[in-house]
Every structure is written in C-alpha cells, then in structure tokens.
C-alpha cells in the first residue's frame, strides 16, 4: 500500500548572513491514512521546518536538496511552483493548525469571514454554502452558539475556543493531511485534554493523516501511532509509540523521558540532559547528539560515526551511533 505522505531524504538549509544553516538533514518520514505521526524534540530540532516544507511555507532563503522528495498523492510537492499547484497543498489537501491561535487569526476580520474566504478559494461553492459548512464545522468541534461565534472576532473568544475555531477552519476544506504544530502547548491541561480528544475523534471520522508536532512526550503518548524523535535536524529514533516510549534505545530519547517529571513516581530524581542544544551554525559532525551524549562510545565522541537509522526491531529505527551509546549506558 502506498503511503498518503512520504518524505524522502529531505535536507533543508537556510542562507543567512552568518552562513548556511542546516535546519533539517536527511529526514525520511511517512504517514498513512488515519494515522497520527508524532514528531517530538526540543526547540530548534527542526520539527516545524520539516512540517512547513510539506506546504512550502519556509521563508525565501530556504534551500532544499535536489534529491529530496515529498510525495503526497503521487505528486512531488517540492517541485510545485505554480500558484494553482501550491493552492492544492496550502489549505487544499493539507491544512495546518498553529501553536498560538491568537496569532493565526487576523484580528480585524471576523472569524466567520476568514473561514468563508478560504472555503471559497479551495472549493467550488458559493458564499451561503460556505457559511453553512463553516457553522456546521464550528458545531462539530464543540463550539456552543456557533452562529454567534461566526460573527465574532478572535479576541472575543477564549484560548480554548480559538483553538477549536482554528481546528474547525483547518478541517472545513476536508484536507487529506493535517499538520498540527504544537496545537495544545498554549492551553491549560483541562482544555488540552478536550482538544486532544477532539482531534482524535475527527481523525477517526474523516480518516485523515496527521503530523502532530509537540515537545510534550505525554501528549505524544496520548495521540500518536508512530513517533519520530528529532534532534538538531535529524531523526534519531523512530517507531511505534509503544516501542519508543517503553523501550527507547537512543540516549536522547532516554534523556527526554528521564527529564520529564512523572506524577506517578515522585521519588525519581529529575535528570536534565547536560549542556545546551548546539547552534545550527556549528552542527557537530557525525552523530549530532555526541556533544551532549552521556554515554558516548569513543568513535561516536570523535564524530567518526555517520548518522544512519538502523532497524533494531520491526518498525523501530534507531541511529547507529545511538544504539552503541544506548548499550554502553546500560
């Protein structure tokens, strides 16, 4: 079966005044219909850049490598350049939900008008139909009084409600792929639980593929089927959610899990990952994690081991340097 989305060997570089920055290196991912791929990692790990590449939303100084492919519905979206083609992936087949719902709505345009506007661009329908689809969608995501909210501005809605409206807007064009970039990070836990349940229901109903980006492993455990752990632009570990969280192999994944305060185990000490994520300007050669790795093997420490994912169990891929380091640590 072919995948809904397949990203192959993606490199993303940015031309800046200080030189060329590698934001993403050799990332390959795939998402099936009705599947949630979770991408986790610290800030600066290239999660958002990867997702934005799918819609070609990265800024003008971005350079993609020539052999990279992003295949959506048998088309390589990286080669899209005409307005019509781009329209297909920006809001048509692919929709995106951003972290800060206040920043994603235009403040001076009513929510309803923004929803109608994008529907008119992507669907061959008239204004009244667009309005009824929008109100219907607002109802679906659990906004009470949808008709009234339709005529309000973003600032009149609370945080949770704005995020729901954002989701309604992203879904109203019936995309095949939904990119959710930290959609619950700005929300309170109680509202986060509501939004997670909502997203799960919607995936089930519409059978869309989802890329769910977050730095919160707890959220990943709740929504994802597959997980990719990213560090400094590279995927260091990848596999089914159960495998990754219960049987992590890479020292970075292990570190993230140990740094997380667990409410069910209050006696466990919080162990931070030492050091800071290096600047992408001086990205380490070889294994990108070696500067912070607690159990580096001598070859990995010197950067002699290339980054390469190896399948350790069926579907569970780990960077080859990380496998050795993970073993040394036990």
């Amino acid at each position: 079966m072919s995948h809904l989305l397949e990203v192959k060997n993606l490199d993303v570089k940015f031309n800046t005044d200080e030189g060329q920055i590698t934001a993403v290196e050799n990332v390959s991912l795939s998402v099936d219909q009705g599947e949630v791929l979770g991408i986790v990692g610290e800030s600066g790990s290239g999660k958002s850049v990867t997702a934005k590449s799918i819609m070609q939303l990265n800024p003008g100084n971005t350079i993609y490598n020539d052999n990279a492919e992003i295949i959506l519905d048998n088309e390589n979206t990286l080669k899209f350049s005409s307005k019509n083609d781009l329209k297909k992936i920006r809001g048509g087949k692919v929709s995106m939900i951003f972290q800060e719902p206040m920043a994603s709505f235009a403040p001076a345009i009513k929510i309803g008008n923004q929803m109608v506007e994008q529907l008119l661009i992507h669907k061959n329908i008239n204004k009244d139909q667009a309005k009824s689809i929008s109100i219907d969608m607002l109802n679906r995501v659990g906004i009470a009084d949808a008709e009234k909210r339709f005529n309000q501005y973003a600032f009149e809605l609370s945080g949770g409600m704005r995020q729901r409206a954002m989701i309604a807007m992203a879904l109203s064009t019936m995309p095949k792929l939904l990119l959710a970039d930290e959609p619950t990070t700005a929300l309170d836990v109680t509202i986060q639980a509501q939004v997670i349940n909502l997203i799960k229901d919607i995936i089930k109903e519409y059978q869309m593929g989802v890329i769910f980006i977050t730095h919160d492993l707890g959220v990943i455990a709740q929504v994802a089927d597959q997980v990719a752990v990213m560090y400094l632009g590279s995927v260091v570990e990848q596999g089914p959610v159960n495998e990754i969280l219960k049987n992590p192999k890479h020292p970075y994944t292990k570190g993230l899990l140990q740094a997380l305060p667990d409410i069910n185990n209050l006696d466990a000490p919080l162990s931070p990952i030492p050091g800071n994520i290096p600047s992408p300007l001086d990205r380490p050669t070889g294994c990108v994690f070696r500067t912070r790795c607690p159990h580096h093997n001598p070859d990995g420490k010197d950067g002699k081991i290339e980054m390469k994912l190896i399948e350790v169990e069926s579907g569970h891929w780990v960077d080859q340097c990380g496998i050795k380091c993970g073993k040394n640590g036990q």
């Binding site: 836990v189 109680t190 639980a193 509501q194 455990a221 709740q222 159960n242 409410i263």
Partner: peptide, 16 residues
C-alpha cells in the same frame, strides 16, 4: 487531565 506517558493509558481524563 495530565497526559499520561503510558500509551496504553489513553483518555482517562475526567473531562471538564
């Protein structure tokens, strides 16, 4: 409401 780190323990949240 705290999302559990265990993927097998999903949606036990008392939804407010």
């Amino acid at each position: 409401s705290i999302p559990s780190i265990d993927p097998e323990k999903r949606s036990e949240a008392i939804e407010l």
